[in-house]
Each structure stands twice: as structure tokens, then as C-alpha cells.
Amino acid sequence: MTEQEFLEYVQSGGQVETDDWMPDDYRAKLVKFIEMHGNSELMGVLPEREWILRAPTLQRKLALTAKVQDEVGHAQLIYRVVEDLGKPREQCLEDLISGKSKFHNVFHYPTETWGDVGVIAWLVDAAAIISQKALLKCSYAPYARIMKKICWEESFHILHGRDVILTMMNGADEQRELVQEALNRWWAPLMQFHGNPISPADDPMFQWRIKSQGNEEARQQFLDGYVPQIWELGLIVPDPKLGKNDEGVWEYTEPDWAELKHVVTGHGPQTAERLELRKTTRAETEWVRRTVLAEAA
């Protein structure tokens, strides 16, 4: 098979298994994309983890712990896929900590209040599930397969998030304010989440059918699904230009793409602190991996 034949094969819906021949560029792109997904799951743990100790009821404590557990589980599944493509998990973690590889923009921001916990579980996970559902059709079959489990588990997170938000919106004025303030904080990162509106034709991840939808398509789907749900609660989306035009397309204030780039290249408000936490906890448990895993290496 030539590279061109391979390209035609994946573009016509063909799927690839681990041991199949694949062009080097395809393998490299796969590793980069999937590794960033794994990094994001692992770093996505940190903004919520801080609130596990502060969850205000036993039910919330259990649900939040389970959500974070799912995310760690996803990181495990995803790094296994990367490992089978040739990059060991330990190397992925090293590259993450050293800032060589990236993770999603939303996980570079602080979690200020319990309102943020609700907004993250509801809207950040909603944005994520849209990207992840599109990966169910990924040309790399082992990745597409684990996405089924991941999407299934993410659906619980949205339920949990919505329940947290609805409970607060039905509560005291202070609780409603917590939600509105959190929405104000998270809106810009959410609008940047699916990336700048690069045309699918120019997106190598789309050309190789690693992704099956364009960035703007994903953002439109997010707005279509969730803006009405936000509005119906009496919450205000902090974008005066937001609205659907006559053609059914959502219009909005241009997201700050420079901020997105700045943040994902390691300059977000929490980037340094979170990577430092990963680095120190990893160093402190190094002896465990050495003792327990070395003989099984």
C-alpha cells in the first residue's frame, strides 16, 4: 500500500489496526493527537480533585470522586493506545511534565468555587463529549473502540454537572450567583475549546480521518445543544453578540485565539502550578513504581 492508497482507504471509511502498515506521518499524528487527549484527561483531574475534599454532601462527594476516577481511567485507556503505537506511558508523562507535549486549554484555569465544579462537569464535559463522539469514527480502530466506553462514562458526568447546577439554581441567591460567576469565568475558554475555525481541508487530523468533524462544526453543535439549556435557567451568557442567525448558524464574538495559543503552549493561569504538582507527586511515588513494576517491566 502506498501513502496515497492509505489516504484514500481511510478517507473512504477504512479503519486501521495496531499491526497494520501505516505511513510514518499518520503514526506521528496519531500519537500526537491521542497523547494530547490522554494528557488532557490526566490534567483534567486536577481542577476537580481539589474539590473532592470540599464536596458539600455525601452524594456529591461520591459522584465527584467517581467522575475523577473515570478521568484517570480514561487516561489509562488512552495512554495504553499510545503505548501500543510505540510511545511508552512513562515517556508521555515525562513529556507532559517538561512541557514538551500539550493538554487542553480548559485545564489550565483555576477552579474558584463549587459553582465552577458544576459548570465544568456540565459544560466542559459537554464540549468534550462532542469532540469525543466524533472520534467514535476515528480511522484508528483501537482508539475508536475505547471511545465508546469513554463517551458512555462522560454522559454520567454531564448528568452530575446538570444536577449540581439545577440544585444551585433552585437554591439561595448566593448559590445562583456562584453559578453565574462560574459561567462568566468559563465562557471564553469554552468558546475556545474546539479550536480556531480551520477548514477541515487544511487540518491534517481531519485528512487522516483521525478527527471526523471540523472545529467550527463542533462548536456549533455545542452552542446548539447547550445555549438553550443555559438560557432556560435564567443564566446570562456573557457574550452580547451570541445568537442564532436566520440560517440557523450561531454567531458570537470572535474568541481570543491568541489567548488559546498562549494558554495551550503552557502559559495558562494554573499551568505551572499543576505541572509542578504532577512533577512532585510523581517523584514522591517513583519508588513504588520502581519496586512494584520494575520486576514486571
Partner: peptide
């Protein structure tokens, strides 16, 4: 059906 894999010491 195949579910996936895990890494473990034993």
C-alpha cells in the same frame, strides 16, 4: 468481547 487492556505487576 475485547474490552481493552490494563497494565499490572502480576
Amino acid at each position: 468481547a475485547h474490552a481493552g487492556s490494563v497494565g499490572a505487576p502480576d
